[in-house]
Simulated scan of single mutants.
Amino acid sequence: MYMITEAQKIVRIPPSKLGEDISDVIGALSSETFEGKLEEDKSIAVLVGDVVPEGPGRIVHGDGAVYQTVKFKQLVFALRDNEVVEGTVVEVLNFGAFIRFGPLDGLLHVSQIMDDHVDIDEGNQRLIGKESGRTLAVGDKVRARVVSIDLNEKTPQDSKIGLTMRQPGLGKLEWIEQDANKHKGDSEEDAEKSASKKGKKGGDE
């Protein structure tokens, strides 16, 4: 889930940057320093903007740099247990597929893809349901549920996220649409049969 939050932090302005425009410098340094980092609430800062200095900077003796407090707005991505996410298949391996959503990749283990035995066509980067014939390949759009989260605090992009699609309403978006249309068709057929039975019963009376 994406959110916009406000933050106040400190950036280090090296001596080589002190003669440049302060707005440009703190904007670039804030993006470089804070984007892609894990926040205290376990969200990930994706984009930093609207950076403004807060008060005078502080010079540390023997360093030569200025430590400047800054305020800014940031776009963060916060992942929660059991959250439903939509993403894209970016890699297929012999044990499953990696799904990219937001700034993270999650693992969809081969056992969590569908209620069917899955054959692996690693050469063509796709997984195939033995009975259903359904395929999952690189570039496909999917909807999955988060079942496990192990965030890497130093490198959030290397976090271990477990996903499943073996629940109602989940799967490749194309499959979800197919199932919805089939359910709609079955419902209409049942309604027609019910109406036919009622009509026949009324005629017999």
Rank of each mutant, 00 (worst) to 15 (best):
S43W: 03
I44D: 07
I44A: 09
V46E: 11
V46T: 11
V48S: 07
G49L: 09
D50S: 14
P53M: 02
E54C: 09
E54Q: 14
G55N: 09
I59E: 13
V60S: 10
G64S: 12
T69K: 11
V70M: 06
K71L: 07
K73Y: 13
K73L: 12
L75V: 12
V76F: 09
L79S: 01
L79T: 05
R80V: 11
D81S: 10
N82P: 07
V85Y: 00
E86N: 11
G87V: 02
G87L: 01
G87F: 01
V89D: 01
E91Q: 12
L93Y: 14
A97Q: 03
F98T: 05
I99V: 08
I99D: 03
F101S: 02
L104W: 04
L107A: 12
L107R: 09
L108R: 02
H109F: 05
V110N: 04
M114V: 10
M114G: 07
H117R: 11
V118P: 10
N124A: 13
Q125W: 11
L127Y: 02
S132M: 05
S132P: 05
S132V: 06
R134D: 02
R134K: 10
R134Y: 04
L136S: 07
L136R: 01
D140G: 10
K141N: 09
R145Q: 15
R145H: 06
V146W: 00
I149R: 06
D150M: 05
L151Y: 15
E153P: 09
E153L: 11
K154L: 13
P156Y: 00
D158G: 08
S159C: 04
I161D: 00
G162H: 01
T164F: 14
M165I: 02
Q167P: 08
G169M: 06
G171W: 02
G171A: 03
K172F: 05
L173V: 12
W175P: 06
I176L: 01
I176D: 00
Q178D: 15
D179N: 11
H183V: 12
